[in-house]
Nucleic acid binder design. Structure first.
Ligand SMILES: [Mn+2]
Ligand SMILES: [Mn+2]
Ligand SMILES: [Mn+2]
Ligand SMILES: [Mn+2]
Lengths: 218, 218
DNA sequence: CCTTATTTTTAGACATATCTAAAAATATTT
DNA sequence: AAATATTTTTAGATATGTCTAAAAATAAGG
C-alpha cells in the first residue's frame, strides 16, 4: 500500500487543510512534518504521481478524494488505538499519542474492525477528537473555544485543541478533565485571562490555555 | 533503536540457531529471510558492527548476548500480540501471524508491559509456543513430536511445529485443537502414517502431519 | 591432491527518503 | 515598475536496504 512516510504526509496535509483551505504551502508542510522544504517538494511529487494530492508548482497541495480517504483511515486508526491504550492498558491521555503514531501504520482491515468492536465503537478519542467510522464519517459537533465565552457563560469541556503532553499534564495538575462543567466567573480585559469555576474550585487560566479548550455551551 | 529489517534478521537468526548450533549459514539465513545471500552478507556485517552477532567470514553467524536479548524481546512481543488478537479480537490462530509480524516492531516498553498484564501474563501463544517474560525467561517443557509416539501411547497436543496458515486450517478441518488428548491407535510401518483417536473420533494422519504436532506425554 | 561444484563475499547498481546549497519563482517594498 | 525579500524548486549528496553478476573461498569427488 503506502509507505510510512507517505501516510504521515497525507495525515499532516489533512490536518493543515483546515487552516490552509486554498492549498497547504510547502513551508507549512515542512514545519508540520518537521523536515526541510526540499524534502517536502520531493514527496509531494511522489504523492501527486499516485494521485493522492493535487499539486501545481508554487501553489501548494490539496488532498484528492483518494488522498483524503486514506488520511481519514489513518486518523481513525490513530484515535482508536488511543482509546485502546487509555481504556484497556491504563495509559494516561498524555502518553498515548507517541505510541499511536506507530500503531496507526499497522495494516490489517480486520484488526481495526475488530478493535473498533472490542472498544464498543467509541465516537471520541481520549482528547475529545471524533473517531471516523468504517465509512470515514464522523460527527462535527458545534463547539466553541473557552476563550470565546463571556463572564457568566458556562459549558462542558469536550476536547483539547493542543494535545501536547505538556498541556495535558498541565490540565491534570489543575484538575480540569474532559466532561467537566466550566463556568466563566470573570474575564480580565487586559490579558484575556479568566477565572473559571470547575467542581466548585476557582482557577485562573491564561488566554493561551482558554484558547486550547473546546467547550460545548450549555 | 534497531530498524525493522535488523529486528527481523535477529529474530530469524534466533530461530535458525536451534538447527544450526555451529553458526547460521548465509544461505540458510537468506532462505529464512526470503532474500539473497549477498543481502544477507551486507546485513550481517552491519549487525556485527553493532555487536549483535558474532561473525567470521564464511563461518556463519551466531547471536551475541545482546543480540539474543533483543531477539527474545521481539519474540515476546510477537507472541503477546498473537494472544491479544485471538483472546480479545476474535482472530483465529491461522490469522494472527501476519499481523503480529507488524505489531512486534512497535516500540514502547510500557505498551508491552501493560499488554502482558491485560492478558494476565499468558505463558503460551495461540500455537502453544512459550512466551518469554519481561526478563526474557520462558519455560522449556519436555515435549515430543507425535511422530515419535508408538502404538498405544497417548498425550496432550500442546503445540504446532509448523504454524503456517495452511497447516493450522487443516488441523481445524480435522478438529484437532490445542489441549486435546491424542491416542495412537495404529502406526503404519510402510509410510509412518498413523490412526489416532481424538474426542472419540479416529483420524488418519500422514507422517508430515504427526511430525508437526508437539505432544506432552501422559 | 587436484579438479569441480557449491557457498559466500565483493563490486557495482537501484529505490526510497532524507539533507544542503544554489537557482528559480513569487511576493513585498520602495 | 524595479529592487529586495521570501518561498519554493532543483541539483547533487548521503544513508539504508535491496538486487544481479562476478570473484573468491570452501567443500566434495575422483
Ligand atoms: Mn494523537
Ligand atoms: Mn487524539
Ligand atoms: Mn507467529
Ligand atoms: Mn505463534
Amino acid at each position: 500500500m503506502f509507505s510510512l512516510s507517505e501516510e504521515n504526509y497525507l495525515k499532516t496535509i489533512y490536518h493543515l487543510e483546515q487552516a490552509y483551505k486554498e492549498g497547504v504551502s510547502t513551508n507549512a508542510l515542512a514545519e508540520g512534518m518537521d523536515t526541510k522544504a526540499s524534502s517536502v517538494t520531493d514527496m509531494i511529487k511522489k504523492l501527486s504521481e499516485k494521485s493522492l494530492v493535487k499539486y501545481r508548482k508554487y501553489q501548494g497541495v490539496k488532498l484528492s478524494e483518494s488522498g483524503r480517504k486514506t488520511a481519514v483511515e489513518i486518523i481513525r486508526k490513530h484515535r482508536l488505538w488511543e482509546v485502546f491504550l487509555v481504556e484497556k492498558l491504563d495509559f494516561s491521555w498524555d502518553e498515548v499519542h507517541e505510541v499511536a503514531e506507530q500503531l496507526e501504520h499497522i495494516k490489517s482491515e480486520k484488526l481495526i474492525r475488530q478493535l473498533d468492536k472490542f472498544l464498543e465503537f467509541p465516537s471520541r478519542d481520549p482528547h475529545g477528537d471524533p473517531i471516523p467510522n468504517a465509512d470515514g464519517k464522523f460527527v462535527v459537533s458545534n463547539q466553541t473555544l473557552l476563550a470565546e465565552l463571556q463572564k457568566g457563560n458556562s459549558g462542558i469541556f469536550v476536547g483539547v485543541k493542543d494535545s501536547s503532553a505538556e498541556f495535558l499534564r498541565y490540565l491534570d495538575k489543575i484538575q480540569v478533565s474532559l466532561g467537566k462543567l466550566i463556568k466563566v466567573i470573570d474575564k480580565e480585559d487586559y490579558d484575556q485571562s479568566m477565572i473559571v469555576e470547575v467542581d466548585g474550585l476557582k482557577i485562573n487560566i491564561s488566554q493561551e490555555v482558554s484558547n486550547n479548550l473546546h467547550i460545548k455551551m450549555t
